[in-house]
Every structure is written in C-alpha cells, then in structure tokens.
Amino acid sequence: MTSLDVAIRADAALGEGPTWDTREQRLIWVDILGSRVHTYDPLSGRRTVMVTEQHVGAAKPRVGGGLVVNLRDGVGLYGPAGSSGSSSSPNASGGFRWLHRELVPGRRGNDAAVAPDGALWAGSMRYDEDRGGGALSRIAADGTAHTVLDDVTVSNGTGWSPDGRLMYYIDTPTRRIDVFDVGEDQLPHNRRGLVTIDADEGYPDGLTVDAEGCVWVAFWDGGAVRRYTPDGRLDRVIALPVRRPTACAFGGADLTDLYITTARTGLVAPHPLSGSVLVVPGAGKGLAQPAFAG
C-alpha cells in the first residue's frame, strides 16, 4: 500500500512546480496565483516564502545560487550567480533583474523546466486559456530566447529521459503526453503522442521522469499521479485525497520521495489538503535535476 504524507500543510491557490534543489537540499515550489515562491527543508522543517511582484509560474535553482523565475512578463533572476551572499532563502536581497522580457497582454508564464544542457524551457498560457495563445520557449544562459512551440494552449509538464535523447511534453487541454527526439542542436524533433488520456481520468499537468526513464504525471481533476513506462504503458496509479494535483518531483537526500503540489482554485468545496504539498516516501528513484546555467 502506498504511504502518503503531508509534507507542507498550506492553502495555496495554485501550488505548482516542485523542484528539488540538490545544492541546498531543499524543495522549491510556487503558488502561481498567490505570487509566492516557497522553499522547504525536510530535515529541519524550515520554510521560507518570497512574494514576487507578478504571478510566478515556476522557480528553479541557478548554478551559482539564486533562482530563475518564469513570471507574467518574462523570465527573471533573483540573486546573481556567483554572489558571495547566501542563497539559503529565495529573497530579493541579492537583487532582481530581467533575463528575458516578453510582454503579451493577457498572457503569463506557467510551468518550466531546466534541460540537461542548463537551458530553461519556459511555458506560457493566456489567462482565459484561449486555444493556441501560449508558447514553449528555450531561454539560454545569456537570455537568448527561441520559441520552439507557438501553438500551445496551457504549457505544462516538460522533462527529459535519463540519457537526454527524449523530451516529454504536455499541453494540458490536448489530453496527451507527447514525446520528441532531441537532436544534436538540443532542440526537439519528431513530435508524437506517447499517451492519450481518457476524459474520466482528468487532465495531464506537471510531470517528472525517474531514473528508469518512466514518466510520472499529476492529473488535474483526476485526483491521482500516474506512472507510464517509456513505451506509454500505464504502470502505477497513486490515488490522492485531493481533486487537483498539479505537478510532482522526486526529492530528499536519495531522491526517492515523490513530492506533489496541489491546487484549490476553482473548487466550490476543496478538500482540507487542497493547496498543500503531499509526499510519497520511497515512491521510486528520481533523477538529479540540473540547475539553470545563467
């Protein structure tokens, strides 16, 4: 039987983007609509919260310390890489600067992921979720941006196989998990469907890839996290006490604990744990996630 615990009891409107920071041995996650970046140290229980000036779709650690954040109007940096100051909490004491600004009225940043080469893959969506109103872009360490997909509705889970040769991607309303081949140029090619989701299973949202190359996906309005093998076969289902899990990531010292963010937005009668961060100890073996190279 799967053991499910509450890692962080919270009331996030739209908890998202759990990321294990291997340098600081902490979990980073965001409340998008609350404009907050959270951290959590499971050993000490220490938690920090930073308020951002815009809705924040994702926050990821940087190689030299600090964070890269996917905001409403683009991608920004907190705490300059190589700073002599402490990066133990995500605050603005190290300063903030824009790395790439892209002001599109009615649109905001959503989920994001760091590729094996250290580039940030930043997704976006329209607030009204208008079809094709979002994009998926690759942001290099120097801020150079390249739009890879420009017909996206709600850009969500992005992840890579252990060898970096495959990229998995979710545009939530399509009810698909797609897979690409990754070329020598580090860009995805040959898009195809890996899994098509039935309507009664909810919507695929955030994802993570484990050390065996299997894909774990949180299901919005599906109340579960599901694991798929590299050939698209459903391998495991973890039922959750909340209706809207949003994303998942492996963390802990040995990367075996599965952390799951959740949301309460839009629910008439949310479960008491909606908006909290859940954890499944010993769920599997994750991959160490690269830090942003900028």
Rank of each mutant, 00 (worst) to 15 (best):
D73W: 09
G74T: 13
G74K: 05
V75Y: 05
G76Y: 06
G76Q: 10
L77N: 08
Y78L: 15
Y78G: 11
G79H: 15
P80V: 13
P80Q: 15
P80N: 12
P80C: 13
A81C: 11
A81E: 13
A81N: 11
S83Q: 12
S84P: 07
S84I: 11
G85L: 13
G85A: 12
G85W: 09
G85V: 10
S88D: 15
P90Q: 15
N91V: 14
A92Y: 09
S93V: 13
G95Q: 09
G95R: 11
F96R: 14
F96M: 14
R97F: 10
R97V: 10
H100F: 09
H100N: 12
H100P: 06
L103T: 12
L103V: 12
L103F: 10
L103K: 10
R107C: 11
R107Q: 11
R108H: 06
D111H: 03
D111Q: 04
D111F: 04
A112S: 07
A113F: 03
A115S: 15
A115T: 04
D117N: 13
G118C: 07
L120T: 00
L120M: 15
L120Q: 02
G123L: 06
M125E: 10
Y127T: 13
Y127F: 15
D128K: 14
D130V: 15
D130P: 06
D130I: 12
R131V: 12
G132L: 08
G133S: 14
G134C: 11
G134T: 06
G134F: 08
G134A: 08
G134R: 04
A135D: 14
A135K: 09
A135T: 14
L136Y: 04
L136F: 06
L136E: 02
S137V: 07
R138Q: 06
I139H: 03
D142H: 10
A145E: 12
H146R: 14
H146G: 07
V148A: 10
L149Y: 08
D150E: 09
V152N: 01
V154L: 11
V154I: 15
G157L: 03
G157I: 01
G159Y: 02
P162K: 01
P162V: 00
D163P: 00
D163S: 00
G164K: 00
G164Y: 01
R165H: 07
M167I: 04
Y169I: 05
I170Y: 02
I170C: 03
P173D: 04
P173S: 04
T174H: 03
R175F: 00
R175H: 03
R176N: 08
R176T: 11
R176K: 13
D178Q: 10
F180A: 04
F180P: 04
F180Q: 03
D181V: 05
D181K: 08
E184G: 13
E184I: 13
E184L: 13
E184H: 12
D185E: 11
Q186S: 14
L187G: 05
L187W: 13
N190K: 14
G193Y: 07
L194H: 01
L194R: 01
L194P: 01
V195S: 02
T196P: 05
D198K: 06
E201P: 00
E201D: 14
P204L: 03
G206W: 03
G206C: 04
L207H: 02
T208A: 07
T208N: 05
T208H: 02
T208C: 15
V209Y: 00
